[in-house]
Design a binder for these strands. Sequence first.
DNA 1: TCATGCATGTAACAGGTTACATGATTAG
DNA 2: CTAATCATGTAACCTGTTACATGCATGA
Lengths: 184, 184
Amino acid sequence: MTSVPDPSPGGWLVLGLLMDPPARSGYDLQALAARSVAHFWPITKAHVYAELPRLEALGYVRGSAVRQSGVPDKRVYTPTPQGKAAFSRWLAEVDLGEPKLRHPLLVKVFFGAALPPAVLAAELDRHAAELSALRATYTTLLEQSAGGRRSRAATMRALTLRHGVRRIAADLAWLADVREAIGQ
Amino acid sequence: MTSVPDPSPGGWLVLGLLMDPPARSGYDLQALAARSVAHFWPITKAHVYAELPRLEALGYVRGSAVRQSGVPDKRVYTPTPQGKAAFSRWLAEVDLGEPKLRHPLLVKVFFGAALPPAVLAAELDRHAAELSALRATYTTLLEQSAGGRRSRAATMRALTLRHGVRRIAADLAWLADVREAIGQ
DNA sequence: TCATGCATGTAACAGGTTACATGATTAG
DNA sequence: CTAATCATGTAACCTGTTACATGCATGA
């Protein structure tokens, strides 16, 4: 009877991002995702726009038009009581299993013996530079949220950034290992 | 005219695993993947079996039947010269972009304020236990490959395991942070 | 005039997983 | 007798991405 299937993981994430006010549009959600959950669960804008009507059909969110001047009108969404309940239940009960990572650089290292050392070394350095840049954005975000007292929710969100920072530190240390092992 | 598309990333990985002797069957490849590349690029058996005929159609591998007694007959694959060349080229030239990770536990932490502390704490501890177990399997694999002198290829493969070990150490340290932040 | 931000969406595709289907042999 | 190992595959599905399509307003 439902005909609308349960949200996919990405759909639940979108719902989760709507849990706290203010009401947000697809455009807002995409931007919010980019600076919050993106580092452990990337969500594209196409995905956001696809999930919103499904969540509405399930009765988990309600959209309403907002007129604007200067910029285009938009449609913002707020969670319904059922949506809030469903999200809490999902969060407590899901088992999404182990993190699945697909790490291109590790592929290059694994098969690295088949690669000219200079090519590999260049890739390693490029990656290290990207990691450093990423760490800078994470620490910036952390500092932005670090002022004064934090809500419980803000504390939890900050913790995921700390994960990113720790992981990057580990990756940089490993990159140094690899550099040493291959010479130069 | 080709009609057969280029391999997907997973397909290239399968080809990569065939580069070194001995010739392997789909069954062998799946097992090999599980103890080598799985921790940075998981490949299911269904995927392996699907890629093999495509690689053959592209002229990158050649399969041949092997009769066995006691166990079922099998079909093993060896790379062709074109396959070897194509793999080297791919490895040097691809840009698969940044690692994309989807980390369920970070989802739970990010929205953790909406979760009973005891539930969250239990998940954290379960995850920590799993990480410890995983680290044990990595170190076992490392020790197996650590005897005596290593080929260049073996050294590179071992380095990816060291990455896993470093990443787990970082994750465990972060889990301790979270535990401290939420108390109990 | 040109790029950027705001704003929304769709269609086609890619990549990979789950569940199903089958069957012999060996070890406990 | 049962479970595990060896062995191969397919069909349906899920999840998500890319590329396309549109258009106004603002600031440089």
